[in-house]
């Protein structure tokens, strides 16, 4: 069971002077339970890509299979698809509209035609999962702080109990702590529920620590697809398309250029410190063992 994209193309404004190819021959397979980062700068096609996965946009050509079924098939129930593939848009707090947070979160499950009891159970569960305290449940969503609003909005999608959760720039505009909290919560969601998660971002640094796999989009095509350390090895090419590897990559390459024997593929601060310590000829105890088990 998984998502498969088979030669997917998408063209905006077909047949007009503004015609642009937003997706070009995209082939991907996303297995269940994976935590995937989709990286690209503005206009690279990453947002267009994820809108295909829950049927909001329809591929100009090519096929998308969700759990083995072609979603562009006429018989396919796209409304149901939207509840199974949850999509949280950028600045999701801009879609809050109810008089209180709880009722707003109920909107999704209610649209699925669930009874009141099930709807409220799901809403409650979703709000707990995003870590919003009970005291805020009956506040107006417009009175919450920026970070709280965002959580409430994410809960609104989670309440539909999707099998796949897609988040488009969930940390945009948040401060560092707010960003870490949201990303941490998403990671926890993935480990506890086994949900497939697709995280769209323009920052490698932010996602490197959390994801299993990075897909780099550029000009509508998949540029790189692999585990973070593989992708970051192409840091020069990434730079030429307006992206950057985490700063750690640059530091390690700088060190290696100066003759220090470090493993430049380390992606986190901990790994980097370990390899630097080894290069300096000092053992660093537990960290080193960890590297071995990783390798």
């Amino acid at each position: 069971m998984s998502i498969i994209l088979d030669h997917v193309n998408y063209t905006y404004g077909e047949g007009t002077p503004l015609e642009t190819a937003a997706l070009k021959d995209v082939c991907l397979q996303i297995p269940d339970g994976q935590f995937v980062g989709i990286i690209g700068h503005t206009g690279s096609g990453k947002s267009t890509l994820v809108q295909h996965l829950n049927g909001l946009l329809k591929a100009t050509s090519g096929h998308i299979y969700f759990n083995g079924e072609d979603i562009s098939d006429k018989e396919y129930d796209r409304k149901k698809l939207r509840s199974r593939v949850g999509l949280v848009f950028q600045y999701p707090e801009h879609q809050l509209f109810e008089t209180d947070v709880f009722t707003d979160v109920c909107f999704g499950p209610k649209n699925l035609g669930l009874d009141r009891r099930e709807t409220e159970l799901r809403a409650y569960d979703a709000l707990r999962k995003v870590g919003l305290p009970d005291s805020l449940f009956y506040q107006s969503p417009f009175d919450l702080s920026g970070g709280q609003k965002r959580r409430a909005a994410i809960a609104g999608v989670l309440a539909m109990k999707p099998e796949v959760l897609i988040l488009d720039e969930p940390t945009a505009g948040l401060d560092p702590r707010g960003r870490d909290e949201i990303l941490g919560q998403i990671k926890e969601l993935q480990t506890t529920t086994g949900m497939t998660i697709l995280l769209v971002s323009h920052s490698m640094e932010d996602v490197a620590e959390y994801v299993d796999r990075i897909i780099v989009m550029n000009q509508g095509s998949v540029m790189y697809d692999g585990v973070p350390r593989e992708v970051f090895a192409h840091y020069r090419e990434l730079e030429s398309v307006g992206l950057a590897a985490p700063q750690v990559t640059y530091i390690l390459h700088e060190l290696r250029d100066r003759g220090l024997d470090v493993d430049a593929a380390a992606t986190t601060i901990g790994e980097a410190a370990d390899t630097v310590m080894r290069a300096l000829g000092r053992s660093s105890g537990p960290g080193e063992r960890q590297i071995r088990t990783n390798a």
């Binding site: 909001l56 939207r82 848009f89 999701p92 801009h94 879609q95 509209f97 699925l112 539909m160």
Partner: peptide, 28 residues
Amino acid sequence: KAQIARGADFESGNLLKRAKAMVPLLVP
């Protein structure tokens, strides 16, 4: 699009139902 992703339906139903469906769009 965001509300459609949350299961909103802007297209079916009678006039009253459609008008009500606009609330999640108009308020934001």
